[in-house]
């Protein structure tokens, strides 16, 4: 005898089943992860880093020693996303004339123009000093980008460098990707000593600064697009 569920549509039954399935999976996940026994990072990792005696932030030690290619390809993913936005920004014309400030206030204006250099400096510091303290290329680039965000809010959408962006930034963006690639690929041919010991420090700082610039320009591109197309959803 067939089961009769008349007051529910097929779609609702499927939805209910999926929700049940995920509840079961979630509970199973909780139960399984409660006695999760993750072995901590192997001693060989930390030993490898401790050879680099100038690097005290072991997160970036792991980057410098083991994860250069990984970082490169993650950077490629980010660049692809930004490239997509750049292409659509060219195709899609902004609806209507959208210029002017987002916030009209002298206090915000003035404080933003004084704060921006400090924020940018802090971003550069974070990218530069990642081997010594928390920070790194990604964090530094993002903090620098948030300075641009402040400018976009305070001074206006047009003034966050429409012309400068269109002419210079687009080219520099991919140049920096090439620089990171060159540094990483050079590791195949250069002697290991350059990447370890005191030489390794220079490479890590260079890569971090390059990543920081790349992420900074990427976030700038994204902000530029969304300020230009604001209110379209």
């Amino acid at each position: 005898m067939p089961l009769k569920i008349t007051h529910l549509s097929a779609k609702e039954i499927y939805t209910f089943l999926i929700v049940c399935l995920f509840c079961v999976l979630t509970i199973a996940g909780v139960v399984l992860s409660s006695d999760l026994d993750v072995t901590r990072v192997g001693p060989q990792y930390l030993e490898g880093i401790s050879n680099l005696n100038n690097i005290s932030n072991s997160v970036y030690g792991i980057y410098g020693m083991y994860r250069f290619y990984d970082t490169l390809f993650e950077l490629l993913v980010f660049s692809t996303a930004v490239l997509g936005i750049t292409l659509f920004s060219d195709i899609q014309s902004a609806g209507g004339s959208k210029s002017g400030q987002l916030v009209e206030s002298h206090i915000v204006d003035t404080s933003a123009s004084y704060l921006y250099p400090i924020i940018a400096l802090f971003g550069i510091y974070l990218a530069y000093s990642a081997h010594r303290g928390p920070g790194g290329g990604f964090a530094g680039g993002v903090i620098g980008g948030s300075g641009v965000l402040l400018l976009a809010i305070a001074i206006g959408a047009d003034l966050i460098g429409e012309r400068f962006y269109e002419t210079t930034m687009k080219k520099v963006e991919y140049l920096i990707l090439l620089i990171v690639m060159a540094i990483v690929i050079a590791g195949l041919f250069l002697p290991v000593a350059v990447y370890q010991g005191n030489g390794g420090l220079g490479v890590i700082v260079m890569v971090n600064l390059a990543i920081g610039t790349k992420v900074f320009i990427g976030t700038w591109t994204i902000l530029h697009f969304f300020v230009k197309h604001r209110g379209e959803l």
């Binding site: 994860r67 993650e74 990604f138």
Partner: peptide
């Protein structure tokens, strides 16, 4: 080290 880059990439993909 594994997840640090993921944060930024999530942002790019979200945009």
């Amino acid at each position: 080290a594994l997840t640090l880059t993921a944060v930024v990439i999530n942002f790019g993909v979200l945009a």
